[in-house]
Design a protein around this nucleic acid. Structure first.
Lengths: 100, 100
DNA sequence: TTATCATATCGAAGTTCTTCAATATGTCAA
DNA sequence: TTGACATATTGAAGAACTTCGATATGATAA
């Protein structure tokens, strides 16, 4: 059965920025507020919001509002799917698979 | 034993362009001259050379001169390594592995 | 060596991206 | 409702990227 397809250009663009990769690493296994991320990255709050929007649009983070705060976390499943799709397209002779 | 580390920002930037992904797809399992790639992509020759240089710098293509021509091919092993490294960093709970 | 072909580099134009100050929107407590 | 806090949006400046014409470099054949 075929996986849901991934737009590998959008995926790659979304992760192709150092600040975004910092944010991704920081909220990898935890739920963090925007302010938490601002503090941990030393990047201005509008900048963090902007990057979160790009990651959200690409489906790479989930968010949920808790009161005044909005908590973000990395969507690891989508990350893994993106990686597998890139590998499937561009490394067909070195297969990479999701170990589920 | 630890794999040679991958700069995931450079890796992601290298693949984060539609024209480059076209080139990558085209020379995935074959050796192609720059001119072959120009013809298959409808992109100007200097543009193709520029993209090939970016891919080369990131280690994602190999090249060998054959007479007047320079033949390029995608380095699938490096592609797979890049994908695995991204997954390792950003999807540790959805492990992805290279099936060798 | 010279002419020709293939690729690389240069330089400029246009586009996209990153960043942040200022401000708007949304949420809650009082 | 009002005030205070948290996040999103706007708008502008600068940086980085893509593209291609013109040209340079490298390789071969005659």
């Amino acid at each position: 059965m075929k996986q849901k397809s991934v737009d590998t250009v959008e995926f790659a663009k979304a992760i192709a920025d150092e600040t975004r990769q910092n944010i991704m690493a920081i909220c990898c296994c935890v739920l963090l507020s925007v302010n938490d991320i601002v503090e941990k990255t030393n990047v201005a709050q509008p900048t963090v919001s902007h990057h979160l929007k790009i990651l959200k649009t690409a489906g790479l983070v989930r968010s949920e509002r808790h009161g005044k705060q909005v908590l973000y976390t990395l969507n690891q499943e989508r990350m893994a799917e993106g990686c597998c799709q890139v590998a499937e397209n561009f490394a067909p002779e070195h297969p990479v698979e999701l170990v589920d």
